[in-house]
């Protein structure tokens, strides 16, 4: 479903969704959300942990 090629002849970028800028943009957004979400989750965890040890 996500392949960007139909043949290996003269192939260049062949990764999934390489021909679909919208999908690539969405993956970038998803990756950003994961990194930001990780830091946000750590902040939340820290705040709770520090509260328990006041």
């Amino acid at each position: 479903m996500g392949t960007s090629i139909t043949t290996w002849e003269n192939v260049s970028a062949y990764f999934t969704f390489a021909d679909n800028p919208m999908a690539l943009g969405l993956f970038v957004a998803g990756a950003t959300v994961i990194v930001v979400g990780l830091i946000r989750s750590i902040i939340k965890h820290e705040n709770e942990a520090f509260k328990q040890h006041k």
């Binding site: 192939v11 970028a13 062949y14 800028p21 690539l24 993956f27």
Partner: peptide
């Protein structure tokens, strides 16, 4: 840029 075709598997790169 991360949505560029250069930033992934490429048989010629």
């Amino acid at each position: 840029l991360p949505w560029s075709q250069s930033m992934g598997p490429d048989a010629k790169d």
